[in-house]
Design a protein around this nucleic acid. Structure first.
Lengths: 178, 178
DNA sequence: TTCTTCATGTAATTGGTTACATGATTAT
DNA sequence: ATAATCATGTAACCAATTACATGAAGAA
């Protein structure tokens, strides 16, 4: 009950094929919501059946046809209804945190390796976010109305990665002292 | 392929019934991994079949019998094997972030309400973590070997909630300026 | 008398992953 | 030659949620 809405948000910004959406979910939107192409196609079919999106088949000569999906009136209404519902608590599932909690049960060096790996992943993700920020939001004081959301979401991503790096550093430092 | 391991970690600390585990997953471990009792009973049955845990039925007079589960040698071996496998990237699914990204599509006041709610949730969770820290880790310089993991995990929780609060504040402030 | 705690589950459904499938075009 | 990109899906399976079920003890 939420991939639907992430897709609606993405289609409200710009109509797209399932393939396009899958790429978006690998990039921008995907920072907050991951989805595979198989899943997207399945959900898209249901959304079409529910009348949330309309579908237009576009032939492109050589390349395979694509189905371009656009959000409908009904889809917009659903977006509003969704936004008015209370945000459910998020399912927390951090295998990394479970490993940290299990520190004394497993090999110290192995854990340290995992922490360093994860620190690097955060570092990479952060670099990507920072690049987006420089590219799309050079001057945060001058944001158009429809840019505030994406900007604040990006800020959330940046904060999350920095926070992850800091935690990794604390773990490495604490373990280094013993 | 991971609730199993969270359960193993919990049972390695202390043997427990499914009911006990469900309560732990509502408290300590549950900060990093949520699980319902139905799910726990199901997984526990599979773990018993795989020989990861042993089960002893304990009658308690008036109260219903309970099945106390303990980690086995095989279970410990599996924990070690699991810890040596690379940590898979975590599935990110933040409905809150999707809502923030969709800011311009939905009602401003509604979003602000959701942000304030969420800030309060973070505040409450933080208060709980801080209480645990004071209660169990009064002096972080004097940690026993088997306390470092739980302590560092708790620190991760504290950082996460603080970070969430800061992000909410940034959102509220940015929206207040327009 | 109603609610909460203790204690265990089954059944149905939804959501998501993994594996498999096809086929042309363009870049290395 | 080989791999990647474009474009769409089906099928099987696993994980997780929701709803339903039972029953006694003790607290409000």
């Amino acid at each position: 009950m939420a991939l639907e809405h992430a897709i609606l948000v993405s289609l409200a910004e710009r109509s797209a094929s399932g393939y396009d959406l899958a790429r978006r979910f690998d990039a921008s939107i995907g920072h907050f919501w991951k989805a595979s192409h198989q899943q997207i196609y399945k959900v898209l079919a249901r959304m079409e059946a529910d009348g949330w999106v309309s579908t237009e088949r576009v032939s492109q000569g050589a390349r395979p046809d694509k189905k371009v999906h656009a959000i409908t009136e009904t889809g917009h209404a659903e977006l509003l209804a969704w936004s008015a519902r209370p945000t459910p608590a998020e399912a927390v599932r951090s295998e990394f945190a479970v490993r940290i909690r299990a520190l004394h049960l497993i090999d110290r060096a192995t854990v340290l390796g995992a922490v360093r790996d994860r620190r690097q992943q955060h570092e990479d993700a952060l670099a990507g976010y920072e690049a987006s920020r420089r590219k799309y939001f050079a001057d945060p004081a001058e944001l158009a109305d429809d840019e505030i959301g994406p900007y604040l979401a990006l800020r959330g991503g940046i904060r999350l990665e920095r926070n992850g790096i800091d935690w990794c550093d604390e773990i490495i430092e604490t373990l280094g002292q013993r």
